[in-house]
Design a protein around this nucleic acid. Sequence first.
DNA 1: GATAATACATACATCTATGTATGTATTCAA
DNA 2: TTGAATACATACATAGATGTATGTATTATC
Lengths: 198, 198
Amino acid sequence: MHKENLNDTRSSATKARLVNSTIESLIEIGFTKTTGVEVCRRAQLTRGALNHHFPDFSGLLVETLQSIYLQLLEIKLPLDVGLMEHILLEGHARIIRPEFKAVIELWLASKNDKQFGLRLVQAMELGSEMFSPQMVLEHKNQGVGSKEFEMIYRTISEALIGIGLGRAIGEGEPLAHESMVLHVLQGMAQTYDHQQLT
Amino acid sequence: MHKENLNDTRSSATKARLVNSTIESLIEIGFTKTTGVEVCRRAQLTRGALNHHFPDFSGLLVETLQSIYLQLLEIKLPLDVGLMEHILLEGHARIIRPEFKAVIELWLASKNDKQFGLRLVQAMELGSEMFSPQMVLEHKNQGVGSKEFEMIYRTISEALIGIGLGRAIGEGEPLAHESMVLHVLQGMAQTYDHQQLT
DNA sequence: GATAATACATACATCTATGTATGTATTCAA
DNA sequence: TTGAATACATACATAGATGTATGTATTATC
């Protein structure tokens, strides 16, 4: 991780270009057409470079998913509402990003491709909390109310993923009923948050 | 649609074999590896047959998705609970089927493949209600309470899709928190159903 | 019963991705 | 400064999928 020399600097820059091209390709044309050739074309590199940095293609996919997770988790909203409502709004801000389509593509790919699936579970928890990792951990094993927290949290998460999938396969724009669902979820979150105040 | 002659009977039987092989392939190895060759291998037919019945591969995909929809919509539960709760339980019974993974694969594919996407919207509404088509239509434009109905219905739908995706990319078994989410949704549904009684 | 259409199978050419080996310039380490 | 390692590019062989043309047996039509 010491980027003291030129080689390491150049190397990680090239890997980043490959990863970013993969994300771009997944978003634009999907996993099926995201081949080694296609990624190299977008990165303006040759397959020699790809093979040098990622001897196994699934390695590239793993790093790509990790990169997207980091990007999405960087999206943060001010904590000016209750905790659960905050998780909801922040999660929504994440799943509406085009990168979330790439996440779904990779989730499915990891199921269909044994190699990739195996390397993925080794590298990261696939179920790692996309919406609020640290919050969940904090609330777990906290005793009273932790169960209630997780129930609401999980429900919001699943609904957000559903909405994200809808966006991914739609025009990227919100489906007509998205605001309805958000409204219901917001009501749930606010109710929970108010309960916690007492 | 008149199956009076032998040709039509044989023809539709062969098409059904191709469609079923496609479903099987989508579930087992995903869209990426579901090629014309693969489908024919599973159906024990040659590409000549495939090309004869489906000159355009996207035609096969459209019929495949339609076939799965019909299969899933055939899954029905007795109406021994409130309407909304019934919709929830029936929807859940559908998204836990392995065929739902094939649905997601095809949804994504229709987004990534222009040809397929175009033919799909011509043939069916992609957003066609997977969970309770007629119910939604009945409640639409019904005035009082219809908005409330759709809000809850849409929220349940999105959460179910999220759960279905989780199953599709997991081991097909329920994720640990699935029962939690179901419990919350069931509470929402029951509350709504009780309100409607008054 | 002869002819045409249908329901497939077979065959070949092409295209694209991949595996892999090797070449070359740059950088590092002594 | 010189050898070795790194960071790529180039090249070729192979494999698998598709496009398409043609062959053949069965069925439908007259």
